[in-house]
Write a protein that binds this DNA or RNA. Structure first.
Lengths: 220, 220
DNA sequence: AATCATTTTTAGATTTGCCTAAATTTAGAT
DNA sequence: ATCTAAATTTAGGCAAATCTAAAAATGATT
């Protein structure tokens, strides 16, 4: 567990995001662009990270994260999303405002702090943008038991189940005509109260964040 | 408002603490010792900070903060103590564990974040160590309406008043024989429940954190 | 007032992260 | 198969923050 510099952490993060979940080979130029730096600078850093055994790197061929590098990157992502959740849920920031601050907070070292923060927030699995928060082993929550309030605008989903199975809630969705297997298209999400405008059975209507949070969905 | 590097911030903080409230001239060596660095390194930085007009500095004579430097230092101190309060009160860390983390958190930039954190914590005036938290204008809370629970071990205080003036509380302190103007010596503070062992009128006894929090005192 | 121990500064290097400009490699097009 | 444009690396340098060793200033003491 070597301690990384802030810059090294940012390079790992960049490679992680560009490479995507499948850990594709990443170009030097792509990294330079993402970090607003120059290709020559990136080359220097890649040699350094290879030397630390955090990445695979062949000159002219590109780079990808090795296991240890990926673990580090996911750890930073975890912290980023937990802090964003804190900023929005506890300090009442808008979810567009928090990225910059989370970019700084994600580099705070203590693992103990990260875990206590997670506990304080109620072990959230998704951040305010709806992005999944990996657990401390680096495992992402399954997209399965995602609820409708996590859906992004312009996505199509299928109703898979209900979280709240009280008769009140079941009556309410019955009134809307929602049934298991129904397809719903999310048209827009209101920033103010997180309510959603959806299209369902050729009708458009608005559904509250609370109701949406109790409908399990699968993205299509 | 020039943005300072992390290192520059740490130098200002060091000068602030060594110089004390009276803003005494500070020796190069003292700074070097506090920051675990070498005198030569300090000299370099002092020239730089002088150039930025944050400090007064005469070679061989010593240094002191100018107004702008002092404002910066107090701003960092404010963030440090707010974060410590957060770590102890919200994340349930022990008050000995938090310094290291607060050292990192105090350098997070956003003023808006600092102010919202303060609001979230209920605008605290003292941190978990009992140290005063300057407000956003850099003004420290007056030591006057300090309560006994803020007192440190091995300090002598005088009872100035009560915060809770219910008959229950007044009866309780009457039973202990505490009166206005009494001198109390704080012997020790129990980490677990913040209760205090005090010496009062030649008797030693324990007083709970709650009771202590309702006695206004003046340090002697 | 001269001396000497201590403090401080200067001089010269080192490391990290970054740059520009030139050289090299790669891969697509002829 | 060769050529050329794009991508990438190499070479050489710069600024920040640090170091060691040597030089200079201070001030306390004789």
């Amino acid at each position: 567990m070597t301690k990384l510099s802030l810059t090294e952490e940012n390079y790992l993060k960049a490679i992680y995001f560009i490479g995507g979940t499948s850990n594709q080979l990443v170009n030097t130029n792509a990294i330079a662009e993402r970090l607003n730096t120059k290709a020559a600078t990136v080359t220097d850093m890649l040699r350094k990270l290879k030397q630390k055994d955090l990445i695979e790197y062949q000159p002219y061929k590109g780079t990808r994260l090795k296991l240890e590098g990926k673990v580090k990157a996911i750890g930073i992502l975890r912290k980023h999303r937990l802090w964003e959740t804190f900023l929005v849920e506890k300090l009442a920031f808008g979810w567009e405002e928090v990225h910059e601050m989370a970019e700084q907070l994600e580099h705070i070292q203590s693992t103990e702090l990260t875990e206590r923060l997670s506990a304080f927030l109620g072990f959230p699995e998704f951040d305010p943008h709806g992005d999944p928060i990996p657990n401390k082993e680096g495992v992402f929550p399954r997209r399965d038991n995602v609820t409708l309030d996590r859906a992004k605008p312009d996505t199509a989903v299928m109703v898979q189940g209900v979280k709240d199975s009280s008769t009140e809630f079941l009556n309410y969705i019955a009134k809307l005509g929602i049934q298991l297997g129904d397809h719903i298209a999310v048209k827009s999400v209101e920033e103010f109260d997180r309510s959603l405008v959806v299209e369902h059975k050729n009708q458009q209507y608005r559904i509250s964040a609370l109701a949406a949070a109790n409908l399990y969905i699968k993205e299509l």
